[in-house]
């Protein structure tokens, strides 16, 4: 109480010039950091504004329509939404087990001297530009899969009831499955590095407790580490999904660019991002441009929702950084 009355002496008045400089500097930096929020709002607004024409004309039917005919002026996005979702899910299906296993290997199972080099290699993997993955995929990976892997897959898997359909039909090489595979390659680095950070933040006492019960290395990893980190790992995977959904160049180069919805994974498809990439430059009618902008709006909405969900999942898991309060 007496402490409260013993007030801190008032700060000596600053020279006005100094104060002016301070405030100007603070304002400039504030504006720069607020640009982030302005950018997000602007992104949404500009896309909405440019797609108004198409939103007003097609309404919800835009999402469910299967016909995309720029000459007739009819635009339905379903084949593209299907292509984006199916290729991303295939990518995720391949990438998640590999990434989580690699992350577990790097945090718990690998010899210590090996960990940093492998982490560096995975960082390099993340630095390879999308267009280079696309180039390699279209000139090397796709021909290889088409000639050697897909025919065998078809022979083995097509007779199986229910899932056989997925592997039926002619094999072009390019298609949903191929783009799923290249997406897997591209999202593995991010899922692995986020998973690794999550596994590293699992308290060591978890591991020690499991070892004390006589668990083997794998049992420690499974019981004490992986199941403890479930939520965070889910977040890492969803983050990978967000990346896969928005990936443009590599997918455009290998998905086949055909707006069909086919049961077969070997069939060519089309994704939201690749339609935009292929058609936006040539779109001559305002309605066509507007429909493409609406595709971008849909894409933005989906990826942002997925990313935010992922960030929240990861955030609740990782240890809160102790930040200095300015």
């Amino acid at each position: 109480m007496s402490n409260a009355t013993l007030a801190v002496p008032p700060a000596p008045p600053q020279a006005p010039a100094k104060k002016w400089g301070d405030q100007a500097f603070k304002l400039i930096t504030l504006l720069a950091s607020l640009s982030i929020i302005v950018l997000i709002v602007a992104l949404g607004y500009i896309l909405y504004d440019s797609s108004k024409l198409s939103i007003n004309k097609f309404g919800f039917g835009f999402i469910t329509g299967t016909n995309w005919d720029s000459v007739a002026g009819i635009f339905g996005a379903l084949p593209y939404i299907y292509g984006t979702l199916s290729s991303s899910l295939i990518g995720l299906l391949i990438a998640v087990p590999l990434s989580v296993a690699t992350a577990a290997y790097l945090t718990d199972l690998a010899p210590v001297w090996l960990r940093q080099p492998v982490v560096s290699i995975i960082e390099m993997l993340a630095a390879v530009p999308s267009v280079i993955w696309g180039l390699w995929a279209i000139l090397v990976m796709v021909p290889f899969l088409r000639d050697y892997i897909y025919p065998t897959m078809q022979k083995v898997l097509e007779p199986i009831p229910l899932i056989g359909q997925l592997f039926s039909g002619p094999i072009y090489g390019v298609g949903i499955l191929s783009s799923g595979i290249i997406l897997a390659v591209m999202i593995i680095p991010i899922i692995t590095s986020v998973s690794r950070e999550i596994l590293r933040s699992v308290p060591n006492i978890q591991r020690e407790a499991a070892y004390a019960l006589g668990a083997t290395r794998w049992e420690v990893t499974r019981i004490a580490v992986l199941s403890y980190a479930k939520r965070g790992l889910l977040g890492a995977s969803v983050l990978g999904l967000g990346r896969a959904l928005g990936e443009t160049m590599a997918v455009t180069m290998v998905i086949g660019n055909k707006s069909d919805i086919s049961a077969s994974l070997f069939a060519p498809g089309y994704s939201l991002a690749s339609v935009i990439a292929n058609e936006f430059g040539d779109a001559t009618t305002p309605m066509h441009q507007s429909a493409l902008a609406e595709l971008a709006l849909v894409l933005l909405g989906v990826t942002l929702t997925v990313n935010i969900a992922a960030m929240l999942l990861v955030k609740t898991f990782t240890t809160k950084e102790t930040r200095r309060v300015a």
Binding site: I36, L43, G242, G246, T248, A273, L299, T303, M311
Partner: peptide, 17 residues
């Protein structure tokens, strides 16, 4: 948070904007 969200914006969207 917004900066992280912005990092996840598909690059093709920037082109259109």
């Amino acid at each position: 948070f917004c900066a992280d969200v912005l990092n996840g914006v598909p690059s093709i969207v920037w082109s259109i904007i």
